[in-house]
Amino acid sequence: MNMIPATAPAFKPADYKSSVKPVWCPGCGDHSVLLSFQRALAELALPPEQVAIVSGIGCSSRIPAYTNCYGFHGVHGRSLALASGLKVARPDLTVLVASGDGDGFSIGGNHLLHACRRNIDLTYIVMDNRIYGMTKGQPSPTTEPDWDTAISPGGTGLSPFHPLVIALASGANFIARGFAGNIGGCAKLIAEAVRTPGFSFVQILSPCVTFRPDQQRGWKDLVHPAAVPETDDPARAARRLMTDDGFNIGVLYRGKREPYQPAPKAYLAPSHLEAEFAL
């Protein structure tokens, strides 16, 4: 039954929208993801100034400037590191990280492993379109082996990377997959990811209209809600993710690891430490 909330919501999705207009191609899934971000933040009722969105380089990484939150559009592949420093220094903030399959899994691959292992309370959203868009369509770690491109004529012949399996093995505490075309569904996943303490990883299948027009209709038909409910058992999750068809949508794993948050022990003036040097 549709009910009316007793009070007006504190924030509307539009409160998280900036005046900067996206440069993404019309038809790109990232437009949908941007809306999902805004809806999730409205659902979480977070004041925009309490939210920071950090990104690297690539189409997906343009997202921070399109929001009315604090943002950091850094260098290629290092968004998780930058966000980790920010969250450790400012645990009061809600920190989301936006990335793509090239930025996040290729040049930034090592940081993904260690962000999962460290389990800082971050939400990592990877818009996966299995291609490099901003450099004109080179294969990424998730590109199919036979996808023909100028830099890899006839395809790479390499098995695609399974980011969710790697995230689980590395210690991520929350693992989900969404499809950009389902704006409301992605918003729910992002909100859940933010609510879950520790490192949350959401892979969003976000079609590339320009270099992967095949995804446009194909993915819409392929995605399906995960057939089994989420698990907190890493062994079950591992089996499930290993046998996953790549199009299961929903929360796939939610663990119980405590987030890493080093904290100051005292607030002494530095001069108090000088005794250590004094003879």
Binding site: P5, A8, G29, H31, S32, G181
Partner: peptide, 22 residues
């Protein structure tokens, strides 16, 4: 209603009248 709900749900992913981005 006094406030427009932030989260009115319908059974399909997007609103019944909204064009899909893709």
């Amino acid at each position: 209603p006094t406030g427009i709900p932030a989260d009115v749900s319908w059974t399909n992913p997007d609103g019944p009248e909204a064009i899909a981005f893709e």
